[in-house]
Write a protein that binds this DNA or RNA. Structure first.
Lengths: 230, 230
DNA sequence: ACAAAAGTGTTAGACCTACACCCATGG
DNA sequence: CCATGGGTGTAGGTCTAACACTTTTGT
């Protein structure tokens, strides 16, 4: 049974990945529909008995092959009433992070092609997806200050410099290396391991890992990295 | 044209009001439907060509008579798949603030009754509305730290003690009067007027007002009141 | 021995917290 | 003159920002 409501509910996924000092977003090339051929966020219509977050996982999986580790609801975009000429689409956007290191892009349906785009090379997208990415980026940046968002983007063990680089890349600012390390380590939710980076050049760095138990303890009191730029 | 999707889109409004050192939420008594007789948040189905925020304004207006000053999207609740037995309802919740001082409650449709409930006296609500209020309260509390949310709850000119009281009430904590005043005034987005409270008892307090222009300047740099409890 | 990246400590100043007394008004 | 609420300053301590040289490794 339906009301006389001509609205369809969709989800979109804004999936961020980080590699080689660049921040990427996962995009697909539309195979069908009015925006055929344009790049867009992965996403699609919600099934009747499917949770919203599961719909995002499913669509991202189907369209790109990527299994997302972290996802959270971003915002519901519903005011672009004529986005699709056939009916109104209201879309709940979720943003997520993933370590793309060994992810194989493997689109199976609905998309001709899936690709990681560095955020500063994103083409004009279908629908209002460019705006959605802007909102997601803001959220990612602000969350970096008070939640361990960044850790999903890195390997599970990482040299401290990777974390620094990640923050500098995403926030697009220089950070004082010494003060940043002191602050993060003093909070205690990043702990050292006894392993070392199997060197490239230079002195090998100790590998660190995120301690989610310590983090959860801290979370209640509120964390604020309060990052100052150098 | 519809997809074969059996989902209907609704909105709910969590409207906060503040008076006499208490925080209130606006509720209605359900007139129809499976939850008839229970108290619930004002809200209802979105019209096909209506923006989400307009749907909230309309529903709140119709069901309670209240014209909301400030509204922002809170979260989309869509996983309670069996909330309504006839079809799935996905609801976009908006939270808002209002100065209830001279608001007349005047429900016209869909509701038998509308009432302000102090947050610590709210009965068990229809659907998942109790959970929604919890989320809204958290958001209100955290926003208090970095956005001038509170000012919609007060008169446009207010003695400083009203602001203190408001913060203490919402955060449910004692705050040092002197330090709070220093911090807020030093940020500069609250300015004094040359009027005074037309006294109750005690020394009449200067009236202050919110300076939204200064606030917008500050906003870019990020404000954090970082309120410590006494 | 040189290049590359990792690791580390101190100091000056800003900022915050804690705290208590006087003032203006109404009754 | 008493009760009520408004208004204000400072000292001690904590936290932060700024800043550069040494260590380890590979080539």
């Amino acid at each position: 049974m339906k009301l006389a409501q001509n609205i369809n509910l969709a989800v979109d996924g804004i999936i961020f990945g980080y590699e080689d000092q660049s921040l990427f977003v996962l995009l697909i090339k539309q195979k069908y529909g009015s925006q055929k051929g344009k790049w867009a966020l992965p996403g699609g219509f919600v099934l009747d008995n499917e949770k919203l977050i599961d719909a995002v996982k499913r669509e991202v999986r189907e369209e790109t092959g990527v299994k997302v580790q972290y996802l959270e609801q971003l915002y519901t975009f519903g005011d672009n009433i004529d986005r699709d000429p056939r009916f109104r689409v209201v879309s709940v956007a979720y943003f997520g992070t993933v370590n793309p290191k060994h992810m194989i892009l493997n689109p199976t349906t609905d998309a001709l092609e899936a690709k990681w785009y560095a955020i500063d090379t994103i083409p004009k997208l279908a629908f209002d997806h460019s705006d959605i990415i802007k909102v997601a980026l803001e959220r990612l940046r602000s969350k970096l200050n008070y939640q361990p968002i960044g850790f999903n983007l890195l390997d599970s063990k990482f040299p401290f410099s990777d974390l620094e680089q990640l923050y500098m890349t995403i926030l697009d600012q220089k950070i004082d290396r010494r003060n940043f390390r002191k602050k993060v380590l003093s909070l205690g939710f990043v702990e050292e391991t006894d392993e070392f980076r199997k060197s490239g050049s230079g002195r090998p760095g100790k590998l660190f890992r995120f301690n989610s138990k310590k983090y959860k303890e801290l979370e209640k009191k509120g964390i604020n990295l309060d990052i100052k730029f150098a």
